[in-house]
Design a binder for these strands. Structure first.
Length: 393
RNA sequence: GCGCCCUUCGUCUAUCGGUUAGGACGACAGCCUUUCACGUUGUAAAGACGGGUUCGACUCCCGUAGGGCGCACCA
């Protein structure tokens, strides 16, 4: 997805919410897309919602305005749609709910669970630098936690920090990770409201999940620490903590975090390479989740079998060879009409495809359909299918 | 640096104390095929290391090594 825009999916009755991991790429010309890892998270959310008869809610986490553009959001929605993942109701804009987030920040302030902090960004940087130099954990030192607000320096707009408990521990009961314990002293007082009055992610998520009635959260493990901080906020508000599942990340073939240099990050790149949504769904499902020895299964079967507890803990490497093999299988087993339709739908996204599309009239179409049976035997992707059909033009 | 998590064939994984450690992709070899592809048969290929617990550990515990994630007025 585009830098900083996050879809979250949730189900209702039994609902869940997916917070796709962020991308932090701020290219000169930001291009939004649905990250392949986020796509798998969305797939898990979707499968769980379908399996339990719940609802999947989609929320665009766009509280960082500078990183959110309409184009980026549209790209995410388009990616979800292409992959065949539907959501219930309209996508909710987190930014639009900022007023309510501020309201909760005030509630926390009033109940003594939060306080104003007058440290400047420079002071904070210095604090971090010092801690690093002294090889101490990098945390906010609590300067304003118990300090008298009367001592506040003039002309400084304060942020609001959550007063995190300093004793005891916060326990996450996670369907994939098991029971994870954080000592409260490891969690510092995070900022929940910026000095410009805008809420911060961890506050917004808790408020929205609560208000939207989210019962199940399924997201990447990169949110595990956030789960602890968010749990503290839920508790401070007296709200029920949702059931959580943190799924392991997808790595590149070399074992390092999946990144640009590995090639395809966004699902639209997979579409452009000629992979079928059904094949990608099947492949993604097998990354971190399994149902015995089953390798090739329909989406309906996945829905029937899907349990959150079936999700593993270790990260998986993305294997293009296996995806390609699966895709070839799906192509071969598709009937000619459906395959031709898939090819036609693919053409706009490949080089020279649109021109080719323009040349296809009724006669050409009939010719192509006749050729499908022979062509599909040796095509692993729609791109190869297109190349195989070149002799007809 | 601090915290949390991970570690079964090259890769994705099964196993939930007792198996000849199974499947899939990939690799290699045979068959089929004019060729390729498909299909099919077979082969090689794994419990990171070191301690425990136990009659018995891949499975439970501790340590080591390696890896990942997190530690923003980002999400």
């Amino acid at each position: 997805m585009l830098s900083g825009t996050f879809p979250t999916t949730s189900l209702q009755g039994k609902r869940c919410s997916c917070h796709c991991p962020s991308l932090h790429a701020l290219p000169p010309r930001p291009t939004g897309y649905l990250h392949i890892g986020g796509a798998r998270t969305a797939l898990f959310n979707w499968a769980f919602a379908k399996h339990t008869g719940g609802k999947m809610l989609l929320r665009i986490e766009d509280t960082d305005r500078e990183r959110s553009t309409d184009a980026a959001i549209d790209a995410i929605l388009a990616g979800m749609t292409w992959l065949g993942l539907s959501w219930d109701g309209d996508a909710v804009s987190q930014h639009a709910r900022a007023g309510r987030h501020r309201e909760v920040a005030q509630l926390l302030l009033a109940s003594g669970h939060a306080y104003h902090c007058y440290c400047s960004p420079q002071e904070l940087d210095a604090m971090r630098a010092k801690a690093e130099a002294e090889k101490r954990p990098i945390r906010y030192d609590g300067t304003w936690r118990d300090r008298d607000p009367a001592e506040a320096p003039a002309g400084i707009k304060p942020v609001i920090r959550f007063k995190s408990p300093q004793e005891g521990e916060t326990i996450i009961k996670d369907n994939a990770q098991g029971r994870v314990v954080f000592a409260n002293k490891e969690l510092d007082d995070l900022i929940i409201l910026r000095s410009d009055g805008n809420p911060t992610y961890n506050l917004s998520v808790v408020v929205d999940d609560h208000d939207m009635g989210v019962t199940h959260i399924v997201r990447g493990v990169d949110h595990l620490t956030n789960a602890a901080r968010q749990t503290q906020i839920y508790l401070a508000m007296g709200w029920t903590v949702p059931d959580m599942t943190h799924v392991p990340l997808i790595h590149g073939p070399d074992g390092a975090k999946l990144s640009k240099r590995h090639g395809a990050l966004g699902v639209e790149a997979y579409r452009a390479m000629g992979y079928l949504p059904a094949a990608l769904r099947n492949y993604l499902a097998r990354l971190g989740w399994s149902h015995g020895d089953d390798e090739i299964f329909s989406t309906q079967q996945m829905v029937d079998w899907f349990e959150l507890t079936g999700i593993g803990k270790s990260p998986a490497r993305f294997d293009f060879a296996k995806l390609e093999n699966l895709n070839g299988h799906y192509i071969r087993h598709m009937d000619d009409d459906a395959l031709l339709d898939a090819l036609l739908a693919f053409l706009p996204y490949t080089e020279g495809g649109p021109e080719l599309l323009g040349k296809i009239d009724v006669a050409k179409r009939a010719q192509l359909k006749m050729a499908m049976a022979g062509l599909k035997e040796r095509a692993k992707t729609l791109l190869e299918l297109k190349i195989g059909a070149n002799y007809l033009f």
